[in-house]
Design a protein around this nucleic acid. Sequence first.
DNA 1: TTAACATTCAAACGTTCGTTTGAATCCTTA
DNA 2: TAAGGATTCAAACGAACGTTTGAATGTTAA
Lengths: 226, 226
Amino acid sequence: MTLRALKPPHETRTRILDAAEELFMQHGFEGTSMRLLTAKAGANLAAVNYHFGSKNALIEAVFRRRLDPMNAARIAELERLEKDAGGRPLTAEAIIRAFIGASLRMIEDTKSGGRNFIRLLGRTYTDPQKPIRALIGQLYAPAMERFKAAFVRALPQMPAEELVWRMHFMFGTLAYTLAATDTVQLIAGCKPEDRYDARLLESRLAAFLLAGLRAPLHNIDVKKAA
Amino acid sequence: MTLRALKPPHETRTRILDAAEELFMQHGFEGTSMRLLTAKAGANLAAVNYHFGSKNALIEAVFRRRLDPMNAARIAELERLEKDAGGRPLTAEAIIRAFIGASLRMIEDTKSGGRNFIRLLGRTYTDPQKPIRALIGQLYAPAMERFKAAFVRALPQMPAEELVWRMHFMFGTLAYTLAATDTVQLIAGCKPEDRYDARLLESRLAAFLLAGLRAPLHNIDVKKAA
DNA sequence: TTAACATTCAAACGTTCGTTTGAATCCTTA
DNA sequence: TAAGGATTCAAACGAACGTTTGAATGTTAA
């Protein structure tokens, strides 16, 4: 009478994480009940509290599972580029592509649920709950520091304050692009199949971000610096 | 014994809308209970259902109250610019500023709650609930069409498909910038007071978006067009 | 085989949710 | 002042929520 024979043993945790990823993306954290979640995962209602402790701890686990390797890959890619470059600073474009590539490639991962996660992630940067935003910020902190330092070396002429703003804008563009994948588009007209082509999207986004990052400084900034 | 003497008559609707705006921003739609909301508004628990019909109808009213005038102002500003220009196409920068100015100016409106709304709005573009996203898209549609046409005239050499993507990116940057005001920043370093200076922010953002919009086309796009 | 531990299970816990109800009160108009 | 509609009120509705419980079942090692 039990389904256990069909399920791999010791993988209830993984099935719960997969189900949570998809349902959190579809309905949000508060809109996803433990009953719906455990049903989708083929687990008992009590399984989440047994394996993770609470719903909030599950949310945290969902992000840790994907974000830690993703940011590690970002840092590794940056270090590889820096090693190849010898002592010379990297180009801004290379740094941008190293940062956005890691997330954009996950859009194509429909099998293991990477696309679900990446949409969820893009939205969670602006989640109403402060602890959740703080968690994201904490998981990003090491990579963020490394990339900021790389940009400073790549663009020595740019005022530090201005760089921070432009990184902020770049990050926002990426976050929205990730979150808006699959969703209703405000602007009609783009071919739906292009939304899932990571290589094409990376080139489009990199061109946009690179130009924005290197935009001429406006006089109002000069006035402010005076 | 009643508080009514202290409250302006016939303005329960407005007080509810104001409270909803702030609480939806702080805790999200599902995280805001009718009990907390009506308590903050100084109204009875049943007041929302009496005046609006349901919680969902209240959410819709919150957005209609602000978005309709905001997009009307956008269109009016665009028409004013076009009238002043005679038959000549506008500059891309003028179009960008006409679009982002309307929302950025609301950041400084702390008295009537405009800042609350603008943060709420920035986040809601990527809300998990499809009906909510559809509402936003519907309220934006008329302005979006006008601005797209203006960009096409301003940048006749740009392929239509590319323009759509770049508008998408621009819109995302704006949405994130609005949503992230007041919140924990991923990148440390920018002066907090600058986040509320609409003029400064508009110049910074306009410079970034203008450069991104006019970025050189990458070869991958050429290959795709072939 | 048996003891010890890990996991799953059905059931119930107390709380909070959005909504509804019908009486009480306010406000306008006649 | 009386009537009638608009609004507010306290109270309750049933449903759904996250979590806990203790017994049942599965797994591992002596």
